[in-house]
Design a protein around this nucleic acid. Structure first.
Lengths: 252, 252
DNA sequence: GCGCGCGCTTGACCTGGATCAGGGCACGAA
DNA sequence: TTCGTGCCCTGATCCAGGTCAAGCGCGCGC
């Protein structure tokens, strides 16, 4: 009942990625290298732009897609943060990942042809929707599109094994923080100061820790001078030390 | 020093997947649906067969590929069992997965263009080698090949998050056993009696448990009548109970 | 303003599984 | 045969992090 509250798409002005931002956004998006002109076939590029639909805003708590829905498209986050998660047989939520602007969601739905998880917006979210059948067809004509898809898919396989290893709470949290920092940095945002748009309990769930442990470790990191925390705003004051803590948790 | 012992490729008769088995093997392989004739373009099919190379036997402990090597191909396991693993900065091994006959390895190497892990044979292993550039080129002409690649990649993303959740030792081991059983079943082998070709310590490492815990849980499962263990040979005597234990750890 | 609820923190305690230590067994080399 | 050596099992102990309980602060609806 509370799932679809505020389901109406309010056509308010988009504060993150409005039309004026489009080119700038696309240049930082995971699909940017194929969406933007780069000497490729002009007509095929036109087709690519045709199959992209902008969607949103989604308000915090709204679903972009749900577990079991027919798979028809992958999405690039244009603005806001998306959480992917699934609910197990005992009703417990399991957070699979957080997706920042420029990142893709839905890639793990190709095989079962159904979305295998929920995608929930954590704040006001805007996305680009890529119809997958159309994209796959286009990929046969544009090797660049195909390659990019292969890359994105392959990348996600590696990422998924990040949270797998048996690492201490300190390592996990350090890796989480530098991971977020790196991803923001890659999109041109500050790599040392950012806002975590997810609740502590989501972070805890994602890292397979208790929310209490997340609190305690963040507090300790702060006491040790590694970070400064103000609610959901975090500043990395000693990124090198955090990176050292996280050294055994790989990213790309 | 002990890494490359018995490195010589003994040209002994292949007991698992010799030429006589080829058709039967291909029909159970992850790539079978594209390797075998199925009404697709005959000349393209011929090209696909041309780009497949058989390799092996690899003896237990030999590497099929190593971390950091240039990515040139993906592999289908024809016979034997392959372990993928990486070694972290502190020299500790981390087992990423086990790959049975019919399964693919190397898919996570596309993005970084280098193999991000080691692939080590656990027993006598035979593989089919698919040159990836050639495969990608072929995929632009054969939508079936492209689709199959997308499916395989997407599937691996899901699998990787299997061992991620915070589950008890019992759940993990139960999921591991029914997972192996299902994968053997899918390839036409017995789903209730099989041999684990990996050491207990590898299983433990893969499941993020101590080897001692694996021993103890297997012993308890045996005492509870769920399984029968004889060294590395395992029989599932109560698959339903195991499946129930593992219910919250998803597979495809 | 006031009360309520939720997100976050902190402290006290408990426990699942890691770690440490030791022993058995099978197999190959000397 | 005897000695390694690798793999596996088992018991005793320990500890990181989970669980439980309580309190705090802030935003929101009334």
């Amino acid at each position: 009942m509370s799932l679809d509250n505020r389901a109406g798409r309010i056509p308010e002005h988009n504060p993150v990625a409005d039309d004026g931002d489009e080119l700038r956004f696309c240049s930082t998006c995971a699909f940017g290298s194929v969406c933007l002109p780069q000497g490729v076939d002009k007509t095929a590029l036109h087709e690519l732009h045709c199959l992209v639909e902008h969607a949103g805003p989604f308000q915090a708590g709204e679903h972009i897609f749900r577990t079991g829905e027919h798979f028809g498209a992958i999405f690039a986050v244009r603005g806001g943060t998306v959480k992917t998660c699934l609910v197990d047989d005992d009703g417990r939520e399991q957070v699979l990942g957080f997706h920042l602007p420029g990142e893709m969601i839905g890639l793990n739905a190709i095989h079962p042809a159904k979305y295998p998880c929920d995608a929930v917006s954590l704040d006001t979210v805007y996305v680009c929707r890529f119809s997958f059948p159309a994209l796959a067809t286009l990929a046969t004509r544009m090797p660049g599109v195909q390659q990019q898809l292969f890359r994105l898919l392959s990348q996600d396989i590696g990422k998924a094994s990040l949270l797998a290893g048996d690492h201490s709470a300190d390592e996990r949290l350090a890796a989480f923080l530098v991971g977020i920092a790196d991803r923001y940095a890659a999109r041109g945002f500050s790599p040392t100061a950012f806002r975590l748009s997810m609740a502590r309990s989501d972070i805890a769930n994602y890292l397979r820790l208790a929310a209490e442990t997340v609190s305690r470790v963040l507090r300790r990191f702060q006491d040790q001078g590694l970070i400064a925390v103000d609610g959901r705003d975090v500043t990395l004051t000693d990124p090198a030390a955090l990176r050292h803590l996280a050294r055994n948790i790989v990213h790309d």
